[in-house]
C-alpha cells in the first residue's frame, strides 16, 4: 500500500492506493499555515478512510508546494510530474495537461510515454489562478463556493481586462456601479482566467488530447469556459478526481518506486527512508 499526499496552497489532498493502483482511501483537509500539521492530519485521515494501520503503508510520496515539509514522506516530487502522471493514468491519450489550483496554473506537455516534455507556470502573479476568482467573488460579497453556479447563469459576460488579482477589485467595483449583474462579472472573470490558461497552453505547444485537472476542474463554469476557449474536447476527471489528480500521481509514482526498489533487490519495506528526489 502506498500514499500520495499533495500539500497545495489551499487544500491538502491524500490518496491511498493498493498494489493494483486501486484507490482505497482519500482525504482532503484545509492546508492553513501549518503545512506539516496539515500533512499529518491528511495522512491520519487517509489511513482511517482506507482502514490501514501505519505499518501497512509501504511508501509515501509527497507533492505540492509543501512537499518538503511532509514528515512521513519517503520521496518528494513536484506537482508537475505528479499531475502529468495522474492525468496520463486517468486519460492515457493525454498530450497536454492544464492544472489550475489556488495559487498556480500549469500547462504541461507530455511525450508519447506520458513523461513531462515541457511546462509553463504563472510567474509571481496570481491573476491566472483560482485565487483570482476567489478574490473577485469576495469583492462582490459572495462565498467562493457560489462562483460556479452563479457564473453558469450569466447571459452577457463582461470583459475583465485587469492583469492583476489585486487591481481587479477596482474593475469589479466599476462594473457593479455601472449596474452590471454579478453573474456577468463572475463569468467575465472566469473567461479571463480561461484565456490566460489557454495562452500558457499555447506556449508549451499544446496538442490534443487535453486534460484539465486541479481544484478549478470542479468548477462547472470554468470547465465550460475552458472548452469554449479551446474549441476542442477536454478531458475532465469525474467528481473530485481532478482535485485529487496530484495526489493520485504521487501515489502512482510511489508505486513505481516500490517496484523499482523491489526489482533492484533493494526493497526493505520502509527501512529505506532516505529522502530523495525522483529520477525516473
Amino acid at each position: 500500500m502506498v500514499v500520495g499526499i499533495d500539500v497545495g496552497a489551499t487544500y491538502t489532498k491524500a490518496f491511498a492506493l493498493d498494489e493494483d493502483k486501486n484507490v482505497i482511501g482519500r482525504s482532503m483537509v484545509k492546508t492553513g499555515f501549518n503545512l506539516a500539521g496539515a500533512a499529518e492530519r491528511g495522512y491520519a485521515e487517509v489511513l482511517t478512510s482506507a482502514g490501514l494501520a501505519e505499518e501497512e503503508v509501504d511508501y509515501v510520496a509527497s507533492t505540492g508546494y509543501g512537499r518538503y515539509v511532509v514528515p512521513m514522506r519517503d520521496l518528494q516530487i513536484t506537482e508537475l510530474t505528479c499531475h502529468a502522471k495522474g492525468a496520463w493514468h486517468q486519460f492515457p491519450q493525454t498530450r497536454t495537461v492544464l492544472d489550475v489550483g489556488g495559487q498556480t496554473v500549469k500547462a504541461i506537455k507530455l511525450d508519447e510515454r506520458g513523461k513531462v516534455r515541457s511546462f509553463r507556470l504563472n510567474d509571481k502573479c496570481a491573476a491566472g489562478t483560482g485565487a483570482f476568482l476567489e478574490k473577485t467573488a469576495r469583492y462582490m460579497g459572495l462565498d467562493p463556493a457560489e462562483i460556479g453556479s452563479l457564473a453558469m447563469v450569466s447571459k452577457e459576460p463582461v470583459t475583465i481586462s485587469s492583469v492583476c488579482a489585486v487591481f481587479a477589485e477596482s474593475e469589479v467595483i466599476n462594473h457593479l456601479t455601472s449596474g452590471t449583474r454579478p453573474e456577468d462579472i463572475m463569468y467575465g472573470a472566469v473567461l479571463s482566467l480561461a484565456g490566460r490558461a489557454h495562452q500558457l497552453m499555447k506556449r508549451v505547444g499544446m496538442e490534443p488530447e487535453f486534460t484539465f485537472c486541479g481544484g478549478m476542474s470542479r468548477n462547472e463554469a470554468f470547465v465550460k469556459a475552458i472548452k469554449h476557449e479551446l474549441k476542442a474536447p477536454v478531458n475532465v476527471p469525474d467528481g473530485d478526481m481532478g482535485h485529487f489528480n496530484g495526489a493520485l500521481g504521487a501515489g502512482l509514482l510511489a508505486l513505481d518506486r516500490v517496484r523499482k526498489l523491489q526489482a533492484a533487490g533493494e526493497w526493505t519495506n520502509r527501512s529505506h527512508r532516505a529522502v530523495q528526489g525522483v529520477s525516473a
Binding site: 508546494y65 508537475l80 510515454r113 513523461k115 513531462v116 516534455r117 511546462f119 528526489g277 529520477s279
Partner: peptide
C-alpha cells in the same frame, strides 16, 4: 527573488531531465 517558484521549476526540470536520461 522568489525561492518557492524558482525551486518548483528547477525540481520539475530535473525530474523531467532524469526521466529523459533514463529513457
Amino acid at each position: 527573488w522568489s525561492e518557492a517558484q524558482f525551486k518548483n521549476r528547477i525540481d520539475a526540470f530535473f525530474e523531467a531531465l532524469g526521466a529523459r536520461k533514463a529513457a
